[in-house]
């Protein structure tokens, strides 16, 4: 793939990759920029936010955007800009952890199912079939309703749901790698199963794994905000973007439309950035998946 790149220190390989992204996939580079800004806001929310996240100020209720309150204030006089920044933080945490968990589950299930095949594969795939016949949102609503809302619950359930669904993609990748000559060679040399899996299968499915992870981050953020909107996410007063669009906030949107605008626009931009970046990564990393979906 990178035949023209002369062997060089790692850092410049990274830079070369970045340059290639900018040159070949300008849209993907825009996505990367959006994602970086979003990460920055999330990580440094405590420093960047001009007001406290739950700092109530009855005098400043429902103020339109101004120099002091960039995105206006809500019905309790909380600064929307600060809440959006802290919301980015929550989204970063939930998006990254739940997507990591999901990817881990997908890889574990997919590798076991795809590599061993036979009865194990059969059993796992029937369970995956059954699981995938339920809409994610409905599983999430049902489970959250029994476990109770909360950040850890949301991360766990999102990770599990997306993890089981994504295992199909990894299984497919493993099956195609499994039949390669070098795998058979390693096996006939007497390498242990663990060694084959970790040293030979896993490195060769890294491209789909990375693509799966990047698309999962966007999906998790979107579904989490939907859950929060329905009141099953991280409970208030946590400043989730979905939560800001629901509940008591919604009744005040008629008086203060900026309450509806900011969280939704941020959500759209971030998910857009992640999707575009994911698409570009897929095209650059995995020629087999090029153009699908």
């Amino acid at each position: 793939m990178s035949a023209t790149v002369i062997p060089a220190p790692r850092r410049s390989a990274f830079l070369a990759g970045l340059l290639r992204l900018i040159r070949e996939k300008p849209l993907g580079a825009i996505g990367l920029a959006i994602v970086l800004v979003f990460l920055f806001c999330g990580i440094f929310a405590d420093v960047l936010a001009p007001h406290g996240v739950n700092q109530i100020s009855p005098v400043n209720r429902l103020k339109p955007p101004s120099a002091r309150f960039w995105f206006g204030t809500d019905h309790l006089g909380r600064d929307m800009f600060s809440r959006i920044l802290y919301g980015a933080q929550l989204s970063v945490i939930i998006g990254l952890t739940a997507a990591s968990l999901a990817t881990f589950i997908s890889v574990t299930l997919g590798v076991v199912s795809g590599y061993f095949g036979g009865r194990i594969d059969m059993l796992i795939q029937r369970v995956v079939d059954a699981w995938m016949s339920f809409p994610e949102l409905i599983i999430l609503i049902v489970v959250v309703s029994v476990v109770g809302p909360g950040m850890l619950q949301v991360i766990g359930i999102l990770g599990l749901t997306f993890g089981i669904g994504g295992s199909r993609i990894i299984r497919g990748a493993v099956i195609s790698v499994r039949e390669n000559m070098y795998i058979h060679a390693t096996q006939s040399m007497g390498a242990s199963t663990t060694r084959v899996l970790l040293r030979h299968i896993l490195p060769n499915i890294m491209a789909p794994v990375l693509v799966l992870f990047s698309t999962r981050v966007g999906a998790v953020i979107l579904v989490e905000s939907g859950l929060s909107f329905l009141g099953f996410g991280v409970p208030p007063p946590a400043p989730t973007w979905g939560g800001m669009l629901s509940g008591s906030g919604r009744t005040y949107m008629y008086l203060a439309p900026w309450l509806a605008l900011a969280p939704g626009l941020c959500l759209t931009m971030v998910v857009y950035g992640i999707n575009v970046l994911g698409d570009a990564l897929r095209d650059l990393l995995d020629p087999r998946m090029r153009g699908s979906r």
Binding site: L267, T268, M269, V271
Partner: peptide, 10 residues
């Protein structure tokens, strides 16, 4: 791609 990113509830 944009439509994929706009949340339906918003």
């Amino acid at each position: 791609i944009l439509m994929l990113a706009v949340p339906g509830f918003w």
